Amino acid sequence: MNRSIAAATSGSNRNKGVLLLACAFGLLSALLVFAFLNSRGDSKNVDGQIFAGEGAETVVVLTRDVAVGEKITSDMLATRTIPATALLPGRVKDSELSTLVGKVATAPMFAGEQVIDAKVTTYVGQDTLAYKVPQGMRAISLQVPHEAWIAAGLPQPGDRVDILGITTLSKVDPLTGEEKPNVVAGYIAQDVEVLAVAQTVVKTVPKVDGASGSGGGAGTGSPASSATSSGAVKQDAATYEKAISITLALPPDLAAKVALIDAMRDDVGQYRILPRQKGDADPITGKQVWTYDDLFPVR
């Protein structure tokens, strides 16, 4: 009986010894593989070996978050090997890293994100109004004789507004010869971008590289909607009660209609700027033109 117990104990010890020896050889193999990979380059190369596969590429990524309008510096950039299935269109390859330094972000970017061409530009401070006007639009400035015409001067560059036109003319009844007021109010344009109030323009970082232009697109029809310029930067809180002009982005035909109202005497033609809620781009439904008879219907 004692002999059997001793034999079992001896077998168990041998199994433990074999297991420990196998673990030691496994650890040694892993160390040798790591040393081999490390000998072929730095730690980045090890990362590349791990993620390498058919179609994988080494691309430029960000080391920290980057805000709109922030200039790209070398310490914001690094390279990483990305599997083919995770590569983004417009990615910047590692060999092109130096071309990014000095460019400006047109959209928010985040640490670890692949840098793509669409989110950076060679923009270096084009702050003239021409860079703010969306494609297909025209900038038109209106005189502001009363702050109430522009919602007490509260709209800011970058806001979206509707334009209401009001004309006060007169008409003669062909039967009685009586002269009656002919007051008409109607929406001339909807969802219009405010480019400037007085001398303060909307802060944007347009994409000016290649043929992409400054962003935006032409509105269609009437009422029309103008596209917001790319890379809008949050405005500082401000009001413009003493503003003497407001500049809007309008299609050429609607700009001409608004100019007609602006050219009239104040007691004949007026306009009103009606700010929209942030994100509201829906067209106005229902009746859009009113007359004096709508205000005081004949009974």
Rank of each mutant, 00 (worst) to 15 (best):
G112F: 15
G11E: 14
I188D: 07
G41N: 07
K242W: 02
L169D: 06
V115R: 14
L21M: 12
F110Q: 05
E178T: 14
L274T: 02
T9P: 00
A8R: 13
S12W: 15
P252S: 15
T85E: 15
V205Y: 04
A52C: 09
I116F: 10
T285M: 07
D262C: 05
A105F: 03
D253R: 11
A198T: 02
L142C: 06
S10Q: 07
I163K: 15
Q288G: 10
I188A: 11
I82K: 04
S229Q: 14
Q114M: 06
I82C: 11
L32G: 00
G213Y: 04
Q288F: 13
I50E: 04
M137E: 13
R91T: 10
R40N: 10
Q199S: 12
A256E: 06
K234Q: 15
A255D: 00
A151N: 02
P297D: 00
L260Y: 05
A6K: 15
R14E: 11
A196R: 01
E96L: 12
V18K: 11
D262N: 06
V233E: 14
G286Q: 07
L254I: 15
G217C: 12
T79H: 06
S212I: 12
L31W: 08
Q135V: 14
V101H: 14
K16D: 12
D159G: 02
P275E: 01
A24Q: 08
T122H: 06
D117M: 14
V258C: 04
G69P: 00
G165D: 07
V92G: 03
G279K: 09
F110H: 04
G215Y: 06
M76E: 00
A249W: 03
P297T: 02
A189T: 04
Q288T: 13
A56R: 10
K234M: 13
P206F: 03
I72V: 09
G286H: 15
R3F: 15
D266K: 07
R265P: 10
G17L: 15
L19T: 01
P283D: 00
P89E: 08
G26M: 08
S230N: 15
I163P: 02
S170R: 14
A255I: 04
A111K: 09
V124M: 02
S245G: 06
K71T: 06
G216Y: 01
Y131C: 01
